[in-house]
Write a protein that binds this DNA or RNA. Structure first.
Lengths: 215, 215
DNA sequence: TAGATTGTTAATCGATTAACAATC
DNA sequence: TAGATTGTTAATCGATTAACAATC
């Protein structure tokens, strides 16, 4: 166990480990080596060992990692040993898809409130949750102990919504809008904008990745 | 213009530049400096200049970058000066959201075919496109000059679908399923799995990012 | 004991940032 | 000319990988 600052690159791999470990657990595989993890996840085994060693000595030399134990530990590290309440802002197509797709549930993340600005959406039910007007957000976030906000509104509204979420005291935001949001440094933001991913893919079409520089 | 290998980190910033430049263009701003771009996009100006300089001398000393010219150039670099046809596999909630949300259209990316395995989905129309059975994928991809595939099927099906897309000759895949896909090296894959993003956010809740290591 | 695999240090690799001459 | 800003080299910073002693 070291007490260095842990980089975001490391943190983002933890859910990847967790997911695969859960699969192993389901198949009742008792232990796994960094070697095998690396192979399955396309990562360097040394990197995996190093990542895990930041948080503790979870493995056993000569044996590997106990699957159940490592799952428990990673869940603790990610704060997933308690339920994390999430608010979703933007009940459009994408927002509806995210709230239906409640795969997070098994990971203790739960969308407990949904907000929208459109009067036509308000009052309707998505996945058993009644859509509320954004005016009620601050109050609702405080009352329901909501700690994470998901933004699925049009990009023109994203900053406004982020400001409201911050005012409500949310600690982290997952932003699906294609905008760089300005928030105070204590609020963590992850961009989940897939248009960026998709457009950048186009670069790799057509052999453009090898330089054709003849000139 | 250098002919180094361009890293993916650089490529992924290009769509971010492009998006902001489009906004400037709409406001009819004629030129922009790396300084200003950096400020708005929360990036280091030197990094922006370096990124752009990989592809050519697009700026003018003392002036900055001509907005329209830079847009044109970045679109060329990203292969977006031609229409790129995209296939979507998986007509569930998320798939429907993506195909409705056709924000890519203005960037010359177009979802032209949608596939699903569920008999109940097949034949229905989403955003004016008829959902086809996966059995028709290979044929359809070839006929419609589809070059990118988007995977929005359940994770248990993702690898199978990826194999079919590869067999059909797709050059790149955007994968929303939470699985590490195995594909031949000439096919580019980007992971767009937001559960990873969301779970990793939980790490930052609650002051966990500063080490409490007292022991 | 022999084989396997960890945790960790050192080496490498790559990406970001600073600095500045060139020049509009 | 003076001020601004690029393109690029050099310096820095950080992340990944290799190597290996410790040990199950």
């Amino acid at each position: 166990m070291k007490s260095e600052k842990i980089s975001d690159a490391v943190v983002r791999r933890l859910p990847v480990y967790l997911r695969f470990l859960n699969q192993l657990s389901q198949r009742e595989v008792p232990t796994v080596s960094s070697q095998e993890l690396g192979q399955k996840l396309a990562l360097n085994p040394a990197q995996i060992r190093k990542d895990l060693a930041y948080f503790g000595d979870f493995g056993r030399k000569g044996i590997g990692y106990d699957v159940s134990y490592l799952i428990e530990k990673i869940r603790q590290i990610l704060n997933l040993d308690q339920q994390i309440n999430v608010a979703l802002v933007g009940a459009g197509n994408l927002g509806q898809a995210l709230s239906n797709y409640n795969a997070y549930l098994k990971d203790n993340m739960k969308i407990v409130s949904i907000f929208d600005a459109f009067p036509s959406k308000i009052g309707s039910k998505i996945n058993n949750i009644t859509v509320q007007p954004i005016e009620e957000l601050v109050e609702s976030v405080k009352q329901n102990n909501i700690r994470i906000g998901i933004i699925t509104v049009p990009d023109t509204e994203a900053q406004r919504v982020a400001d409201v979420l911050v005012a409500a005291g949310v600690e982290a935001i997952l932003n699906f809008a294609p905008t760089i949001l300005k928030v105070p440094p204590e609020v963590r933001i992850h961009a989940a904008d897939f248009t960026t991913d998709l457009l950048s893919l186009a670069y790799y079409l057509n052999g453009k990745e090898t330089e054709l520089d003849e000139s």
